[in-house]
Design a protein around this nucleic acid. Structure first.
Length: 487
RNA sequence: GAGCCGUUAGCUCAGUUGGCAGAGCACCGGACUUUUAAUCCGGGUGUCCCGGGUUCGAACCCCGGACGGCUCACCA
């Protein structure tokens, strides 16, 4: 046999099937049960001698001459099917013999239990519904090659059932979060993904172009500034779960497009945001695992509230071993880096250095859920400063297993102060910090109409899903992670 | 963007000192009417990622490239 030709073989089989009266690509099939229903309710079904119909993909075939067993899976699970030549309509067994692993079929028959105890459909009649032209990966080892798994996720989902389960968990987590927020009277809204001015986070955007209007547009790096505009408009409890796009590195924790929850609550502050974060995450962990203690990459994580809350400068000193105050100078910081053998790009600005140093000395040690709060104003351009300490903001981040999961603050509502912050950002930008904010005059205008005191929260959904599914890389929780094109 | 590692049959993987390209599953042919990674007999289906080089001879050694993974950098 020539090589090319599994597909050739299968095209030939299609012709033979057609000659035998089978349609290789059927329109529809009426099912009475899903596979798992049949397995769960088999006693009743067998006793009543009910004829059931089910459909699914053949994943194994054990041929024994004039009879054969096969396993069939549908969206619910797996069931065994039994084809016996003299129980099928005349000539139908010849059609069965032309079926391959990977084909999708519909079967009709009675349920019974084999002498080895396997619940099985005794097929009285069946139809080919969709012929498969490609071989599925080997049944025993499954599909391991991560490149094929990510590029051809459809094969991964067929070959590795636990991958399908993982994504089902992802969807359940998101649904759970939506329900949690709906129960608390939050409305889900949608704001622009394409923005003429990207804002709301310190990140480099993707650029695109609108032809008819001949204008450059940016894929959003965050919905924040639009959501706050809606808060100005009178929406007191809103959230958005949607994609953000950042034109930055790809890693086990970063994909260029990722899913973010942002929520805003009027007449609330960052303490309320800590409470809602704790409740939302703990509730979701409980819903997925039935417990608040889970394992992530061999680490025990305990989500039982209350979680540790530590001030940013206290964390820096107690956990990072960096004893500084908010009046620290750039030279002092660089001295500390040298002392600690941390290589630091000296051209970075003050905020970038202090943020990076915090990341390197503190974050990696925050394994159990920990709120770090009261961030420097320098690195928090959209957060409200403390009344009695304007160099600090009412902002926190949540860390779990050494990575950031949430970021929240009491929103800055004073348009004059916001303008000052934007102007400072613009200076940083002019000095070479490409991630610093541009001035958004319309956002200032919105604040001038009056944003009520508001608390805001962002949670990285992909990272939360990683934690709850014990996934070592973000690519495992995104159906189609970004890869370079093939060939 | 940098360093390290990987790429061999549809899939999972071996491949000796540089000397005819291998196994299991899948697939094809045959046997088998309750199997469970069914079993038994027969069959190897290949651009060894790509392009150069060294050599009598390269999957193997050297150079360049592609894609992927990990670590770092950047970030969430």
């Amino acid at each position: 046999m020539e090589t090319d030709d599994l597909k050739t073989q299968r095209y030939e089989k299609i012709e033979r099937l057609k000659e035998l009266g089978a349609q290789p690509y059927a329109r529809i099939y009426d099912r009475t049960h899903e596979c798992s229903d049949i397995v769960e309710n088999w006693e009743k079904l067998a006793k009543n001698e009910e004829s059931v119909s089910a459909a699914g993909r053949l994943i194994t075939i054990r041929n024994m001459g004039k009879a054969s067993f096969a396993d069939m899976v549908d969206g619910s699970g797996r069931v065994q099917v039994y084809f016996k030549k003299n129980k099928l309509p005349e000539g139908k067994y010849d059609i069965f013999k032309l079926l391959d692993i990977g084909d999708i079929i519909g079967v009709k028959g009675q349920v019974f239990k084999t002498r080895t105890g396997e619940i099985t459909i005794f097929v009285e009649d069946f139809s080919l519904l969709t012929k498969s032209l490609r071989e599925l990966p080997e049944k025993f080892h499954g599909l391991r090659d991560v490149e094929i798994r990510y590029r051809q996720r459809y094969v991964d989902l067929i070959a590795n059932r636990e991958v399908k389960k993982l994504f089902e968990t992802r969807m359940k987590i998101i649904r759970h979060i939506r329900n949690f927020l709906a129960d608390r009277d939050f409305l889900e809204v949608e704001t622009p993904m394409m923005q003429s001015k990207p804002g709301g986070a310190a990140a480099r955007p993707f650029t695109t172009h609108h032809n008819a209007l001949d204008m450059d547009l940016y894929m959003r790096v965050a919905p924040e500034l639009y959501l706050k505009r809606l808060a100005v408009g009178g929406f007191e409890r809103i959230f958005e779960i949607n994609r953000n796009f950042r034109n930055e590195g790809v890693s086990t924790k970063h994909n260029p497009e990722f899913t973010m929850l942002e929520l805003y609550q009027a007449y609330a502050d960052y303490n309320d945001m800590m409470d809602i974060t704790e409740a939302l995450v703990a509730d979701t962990v409980q819903a997925v695992h039935g417990t608040l203690k889970i394992t992530y990459q061999d680490q025990e994580l305990d989500f039982t509230p209350p979680w540790t809350r530590i001030k940013w400068f206290d964390a820096f000193r107690e956990i990072g071993g960096v004893d500084i105050s908010v009046s620290v100078t750039k030279d002092e910081l660089l001295g500390i880096c040298e002392e600690k053998n941390i290589s630091m790009d000296t051209s970075l600005n003050m905020g970038q250095i202090i943020d990076k140093l915090f990341g390197l000395t503190v974050e990696e040690k925050l394994v159990q859920p920990t709120f770090v709060y009261d961030y420097p104003t320098e690195i928090s351009p959209l957060a409200r400063q403390h009344d009695d300490a304007p160099e600090l903001t009412e902002r926190f981040e949540l860390f779990v297993s050494a990575f950031e999961v949430a970021n929240a603050f009491t929103e800055l509502t004073d348009p004059t102060e916001q303008m000052r912050r934007f102007e400072h950002q613009q200076e940083l930008r002019d000095a070479g910090d490409e991630e610093a904010h541009e001035i958004d005059h319309d956002f200032i205008r919105a604040l001038q109409y009056g944003l009520p005191p508001t608390g805001g929260l962002g949670i990285g959904i992909d990272r939360l899903v990683m934690l709850l599914t014990d996934s070592p890389t973000i690519r495992d929780v995104i159906f189609f992670p970004l890869l370079r094109p093939e060939k």
